[in-house]
Design a protein around this nucleic acid. Sequence first.
RNA 1: GCCCAAGUGGCGGAAUGGUAGACGCAGGGGAUUCAAAAUCCCCCGCCUUCGGGCGUGAGAGUUCGAAUCUCUCCUUGGGCACCA
Length: 854
Amino acid sequence: MSYHEGPQMTRYTPAEIEAKWQDAWDKAGVFEAKRSADKPKYYVLEMFPYPSGRIHMGHVRNYTMGDVIARHKIATGHNVLHPMGWDAFGMPAENAAMAIGGHPKEWTYSNIADMRSQMKPLGLSIDWSREFATCDPEYYGQQQALFLDMLEAGLVYRKNAVVNWDPVDMTVLANEQVENGRGWRSGALVERRELTQWFFKISDYAEDLLEALDTLDNWPAKVRLMQENWIGKSRGLQFSFERTDDGAPITVYTTRPDTLMGASFVGISPDHPIAKAMEAESDEVAAFLAECRKGGTTEEAVETAEKLGMDTGIRVKHPLNPDWELPVWIANFILMDYGTGAIFACPAHDQRDLDFCRKYDLPVIDTFMALDAPKPVEAEAFVPPKTEKVRWINHFAGLDVATGEEAINATIDKAEAEGWGEGVTKFRLRDWGLSRQRYWGCPIPVVHCDTCGVVPEKKENLPVRLPDDVSFDRPGNPLDRHPTWRSCTCPKCGGAALRETDTMDTFVDSSWYFARFTAPRAETPTVAEDAAYWMNVDQYIGGIEHAILHLLYSRFFARAMNITGHLPKSASEPFDALFTQGMVTHEIYQTRDANDRPVYHLPEDVEDGKVKATGETVEIIPSAKMSKSKKNVVDPVSIIDAFGADTARWFVLSDSPPERDVEWTASGAEAAHKHLTRVWTLCDKIAAMDPDAKGEGDQDLLREMHKTIRDVTLGLESFGFNASIAKLYAFTNILSKSKAGAAAQKEAIKVLAQLMAPMTPHLAEDIWALQGGEGLIIHAPFPVADEAMLVEATVTLPIQINGKRRGEIEVAKDLPKEEVEKLALAHEAVVRALDGAAPKKMIVVPGRIVNVVV
RNA sequence: GCCCAAGUGGCGGAAUGGUAGACGCAGGGGAUUCAAAAUCCCCCGCCUUCGGGCGUGAGAGUUCGAAUCUCUCCUUGGGCACCA
């Protein structure tokens, strides 16, 4: 450290300075959000975590991004709300109780305490006074009040729906508890079984939720597209097939009515009323339906299951030709939830129908063929885009060459004119089933009374609290078998009644927490003035895995909360801007045991490709999402202990664009730390300069400084944190080599600290203090680039020949096109390429490029 | 099976129609040091007959010009309604 003159250099000791500044922020209460009219408000929110007990690098990345935004907004004069809470209900707590004993409540609250203490050293700009957990009775009691208001508003109802049923454990299983069609604990083959369950009428809002996607300009296009596809608006034809017996007609819905002449059979869902009626009378049908009900409830399980069918013996008449009879089959791939639960199959133009027809030897009839290479369908269905023109065979509306779209419209028009069918709009979106047959969730606040039926609990009796004395030694819902909890009095007649034992889906908890943060201690779900002031969330940040369900449910809830008076109309779209960040990944280190089974090793136990303890060589598997089972995890706490929070923060932002995955590498973390040490040392060096010392290149340094301000700011405003950091690296290089005078260097290092402050707030505060900055850096106005310093007199124009770069010329910024052409033609590379001939064409894009076509 | 993304040097990535590889890691060379660590400086896509040629998962297309736009395919990741 003796390579330059000056006082004894200090060491960069993050442990000391980080604690010091966190303490200073706390004392000054800088992150406490208060309503005030003097500044614009800014609400930044990261998706709140599930309290698993340990924070992981994904959390560090997520919360650091939010923190960068929050700190930048504070520095640009905003009144910032940046809260934190816990998505605390859910299955893992019950699983832990089953596996290791204890109570979900104790497990959860102890995890929250652990995670909070791991999170605090990161120095996040969080208003901890607003913290809550969704399992706090103060929170879920308000959620129950919301539920009652929604019930009253007609947004909640009960109906039957299928669940995964474990016939051995006699319990409902979550999708993730079904492994290869078997229950995770019992190993029994899972069945689909119907239960009466509670639903939110999200389908009432299908059209609105779809249309409003267009207003979400600051959401990723891919998220909007995913939601659009999920809502799945379609226009099709609904009509009925008359039966040849005297049974009621079978109503079908199809999005491809134009293929009606290619109909092969009519298919009904195993859950269709006709199938169910037959089940009671026929052992054969009952056995077939039992077969269809094997397997889980997921769409994936249903769609990838082997296609099964059974001829019901029922025959129907083709609507266009009463002499044409079609068989009615029960088919396991038809969903009762979509359309009418019945279809007609056109195997020539639908692969699924074709597979089915080939298997069961049903006819395949072409209805149209390609214009260029017409050939009958064999093993592959012919499914061109609906916008492609095709040649129709025997089209009943007289079409010859037309697109699918045109044919669909013609068919619907014809059906409506002739009165045998109508064009209808349907949505793929189903109502939201919120019932869960589990303990650790928000109790649904209704009672079942023998005389009054289903009765809402009175609001003054909320919260309906979960009982603490429960056990998890048996499968099933402990609320069901609790000796006394269910007993209550009917709010309506005062007679003896039983409580509902279903609890709410945890997605309900996370569908309004953002609104609760605006008034977290209120005796009502929200407070009008606070909601009006803080909503909407200006920037929401979270994982892409929540692109559909969580975000769609939250959008629905915001609407429901508006009509029940808990949110203003303007908050119907609660998230003004959304950013979906990528995961943190790491290589996987694997060896094999005596039985050739894989054994995984923590990164900290591996050195130079060998297991430290045994010297075994590890196999390196490419980076994947950090997971405990693969042991490719790096504990943020140990990184903070080794390098400090600023290093961890700097690294998770530096190496990859925020929306992409970032690979954690030990060398990358060390490099980040090395860089921060370098900035620290540079600060010391500048502080030690004679304040009056003159130098050379002051203007150049300041010019670069202003360019850096411009570029870093742009990065901060557009989630280009990695780009901002690259510019900060570059400017640090320039500053450390600069021979400028003391005043310019001091200005430069202070601005550098300010630009770094959102990412490395502790280091920045320390530099600011050492360089005599006024107050806390977090309160100092963010630097603004001076436009005058950004203007360049000349510009370097690349010269291309046939689009390939072959040279460059330096020209005045506003040199006329003709002059540029002359200079380009005089360039030696151009002269050589032309070899005396005239150029075919010249493209001059002022200030950008010259392209000579020869 | 269906829906949505992503693919660029040895590695992470930059450039969103205009100089491909900014910035960082790894690597190589040098300075400093008794030596090392640390630090500092320089080099660093591939091939080359030193003219240049090739190069952004593969193949085609649009354009004066394509990593960027279009189509087909391959691979990887996310979601599929009871994981959160």
